[in-house]
Design a binder for these strands. Structure first.
Lengths: 199, 199
DNA sequence: CGTTTTTTCGAACGTACGTTCTAAAACGTA
DNA sequence: TACGTTTTAGAACGTACGTTCGAAAAAACG
């Protein structure tokens, strides 16, 4: 019996995403988001209690979308294949979702939603634990119990930081990372993770 | 004969830097900067024509301070020593100047000064050319004429992107990067720049 | 066809912040 | 000590933006 919705949550988050990708968090004003959709501002607030909540939800949605493939890649049986797959998935996802990647990689969570809504606190914590557990598992498989914090840092560097660094420069220009990036990431992993030098 | 200044330009930029390092560009309001110094807002505008100009000047000052050592490191006679020196200088500078590094690495130029003041256009261009020339020289020394754009991208990845990414994770927590980062950066350079595999 | 419920729609309000403006203060110098 | 110049000082103004509010529109159902 109700009037059918004309502007859904995802639609609104999509518009916000494009604005953020284009001009940074400050460009994603409520009026701007509404304007991009041809919607009145009131409709935005009918879906989201506040702008901070909207952008926080956008952040969570983006992280989740990214993590799906990353976590799956890490599950590969072969150890090095899992690591390389995860690192290269990182690059490939950036390549295929430039706008989403700009939101995720060019800004920090705090820059998007200045005051993180408390009602999303546990959801945020859950995001981290999933990846943290997967990384810990990988460290355990690779280095056994003796790894320690340095081993974790090394794996994070290889699987997250390096692909991030390689892709970021291109993201800034609004372009997908070229194939050379895959090669650079692969080479880095070979030395940082796969090799076992005596030193 | 004039009244002596109580708040100098550098002093004001220092206050702005701390606010940005602490809470991001939006936290560096004119009133906030003035408040941090115990100065009235009018004095800020007596030194800087606008907030954008202030933050733009802060950006330029920070980049210049960083570049001094980076460019010097690249001048080393030995090729690999130059590359490794520049990459590790990157990490070391971050380690020694956490606040400045947060301004430089956690935000982009556009996030600091939303509309870059045109009067600083050439100064900004000059910043880039210095480093670009140094990098091109290094590429030429390392790969000769046949390098091309891919060789430049490889060197930038090794000397800039990787150290940046390795340090960033710690900067976000407001901590200086640990020594492990130097090792990771070194290993990456060994594989990406120093080795000459047949593939 | 009227009732009910949900959503649209946009005007209106409050606030935070960049910027301007006018007056007074502080210092060197004549 | 009076004058000129620069800076301090902070109140005042305008604007951009987040948020609220009330009314109208649109469907489903009896």
């Amino acid at each position: 019996m109700p009037r059918p919705p004309k502007f859904g949550e995802d639609q609104i988050m999509d518009a916000a995403m494009r604005l953020v990708a284009e001009g940074g968090p400050n460009a994603a004003t409520v009026a701007g988001i509404a304007g991009a959709l041809g919607a009145p501002v009131g409709s935005i607030y009918h879906r989201f209690k506040s702008r901070d909540l909207l952008l926080a939800r956008l952040w969570i949605r983006t992280v989740k979308r990214f993590q799906v493939g990353f976590l799956r890649a890490l599950e590969a049986d072969d150890l090095d294949e899992a690591a390389l797959g995860a690192a290269l998935y990182n690059v490939e996802w950036t390549r295929r979702h430039v706008d989403e990647a700009r939101v995720l990689l060019l800004y920090r969570r705090e820059d998007l939603a200045e005051r993180w809504p408390e009602e999303l606190g546990e959801e945020l914590a859950a995001l981290n634990t999933d990846v943290e557990r997967a990384v810990r598992d990988h460290v355990l498989r690779r280095y056994g119990e003796g790894g320690g914090a340095e081993a974790v840092r090394r794996v994070v560097f290889a699987l997250v930081d390096v692909p991030y660094a390689a892709g970021r420069r291109h993201l800034v220009n609004g372009e997908p990372p070229p194939l050379l990036v895959d090669e650079l990431v692969t080479q880095t992993l070979q030395r940082v993770l796969f090799d076992r030098p005596e030193t």
